[in-house]
Simulated scan of single mutants.
Amino acid sequence: MERRVLGRTGRLVSVVGLGTWQLGADWGDVDEDDARAVLDASVEAGVTFFDTADVYGDGRSEQVIGAYLADNPGHPVTVATKMGRRGPQDPESFTLAAFREWTDRSRRNLRTERLDLVQLHTPPTAVFSRDEVYDALDTLVAEGAIASYGVSVETVDEALTAIARPNVASVQIILNAFRLKPLDAVLPAASDAGVGIIARVPLASGLLSGRYTRETTFAEDDHRTYNRDGSAFDVGETFSGVDYETGVRAAEDFTALVHDTLGETLTPAQAAIAWVWQQPGVSTVIPGARNADQARANAGAGSADVLGPLFASGVREIYDTYLREKIHDRW
Rank of each mutant, 00 (worst) to 15 (best):
Y134L: 04
E317M: 15
G236Q: 12
A190K: 02
E325V: 15
A299Q: 00
T48W: 06
V201T: 14
L307M: 04
P124Q: 10
V141W: 05
D131H: 14
R290Y: 07
V15L: 00
W331H: 14
D253A: 14
F99Q: 00
G46W: 06
Y56H: 11
R111I: 10
R296Q: 08
T267L: 06
D29Y: 13
G24Q: 09
A67K: 15
T112P: 01
V315W: 09
Q279F: 01
W102D: 12
A35I: 02
G236L: 10
S148C: 00
E237W: 13
R211T: 13
E264I: 13
D58P: 04
L257A: 09
Y212P: 04
A126T: 04
Y149Q: 02
L208R: 06
V79P: 03
A35Y: 04
R324L: 14
I65R: 02
V151G: 00
F49N: 04
V276P: 06
L120N: 01
A70Q: 14
A199Y: 08
P124I: 06
I173Q: 08
V141I: 05
P182G: 05
T161I: 11
A97S: 11
Y322H: 15
K326A: 15
E2C: 00
G236R: 10
A189K: 02
D320C: 12
R85L: 12
A199F: 02
A251F: 09
A147V: 02
S61K: 12
D34A: 15
E325F: 14
V156G: 10
V285R: 01
L183T: 12
P124T: 09
V38Q: 03
D31A: 05
A177E: 08
L257I: 09
A164Q: 12
D221S: 12
S152I: 00
G236D: 10
D229I: 08
A250H: 11
R8G: 01
